[in-house]
């Protein structure tokens, strides 16, 4: 697959925009139907332990997480801001791209100063889907900030 860096940049910009500004229900559309999304504490990842704190094995499970955030989880209202940098694609033999990137998510609770909710890296597989759009086939969010400041509500 020819790597068009701008198209890739747009994918990550859309990812951040949909999570931070919405509409959140459009966010699963950045993934292929049979995708894998994992948010893994870095110590688990380094030790080869499989436990992820968020684990979605399909676009449907991503949609279920979105619905839970919107309708079922009780949480203090908050704003998030994703900052994604050092996006680095490498071509895979199967035509897709391995993409690594660094990220920081800043969280702002209504009555508190901004703080870093999560910092880490993305280990992604990006493919060109049937309709020609770039989508995530896999996203592993490996977070260094293993001691989570209270709760992860929105996807990282």
């Amino acid at each position: 697959m020819n790597v068009d860096r701008w198209r890739l940049e747009d994918l990550y910009a859309d990812y951040a925009r949909l999570l931070d500004d919405g509409p959140l229900e459009a966010w699963p559309g950045l993934f292929v139907e049979q995708c894998l999304y994992l948010a893994i504490p870095r110590d688990n990842f380094d030790a080869g332990l499989p436990l992820a704190t968020l684990r979605c094995e399909s676009r449907g499970m991503l949609a279920d997480r979105v619905k839970a955030v919107q309708e079922t989880i009780m949480f203090e209202p908050r704003y998030l801001r994703h900052h994604i940098t050092q996006i680095r694609p490498t071509e895979r033999d199967d035509g897709g791209l391995d993409v690594t990137a660094h990220y920081t998510v800043v969280e702002v609770l209504h009555d508190e100063l901004p703080r870093i909710l999560s910092v880490g890296r993305y280990l992604d597989v990006v493919v060109e889907d049937d309709d020609g759009a770039l989508r995530f086939a896999e996203k592993r969010v490996v977070y260094d900030s293993v001691l989570v400041p209270n709760t992860i509500v929105y996807p990282l």
């Binding site: 704190t53 684990r55 997480r65 009780m74 949480f75 203090e76 989570v148 209270n150 709760t151």
Partner: peptide, 16 residues
């Protein structure tokens, strides 16, 4: 484990 963790669909209610 999606229900119960630092990002649990259930346990998030509790930590919050």
């Amino acid at each position: 484990a999606n229900l119960m963790s630092a990002a649990g669909l259930v346990s998030a209610d509790d930590s919050e």
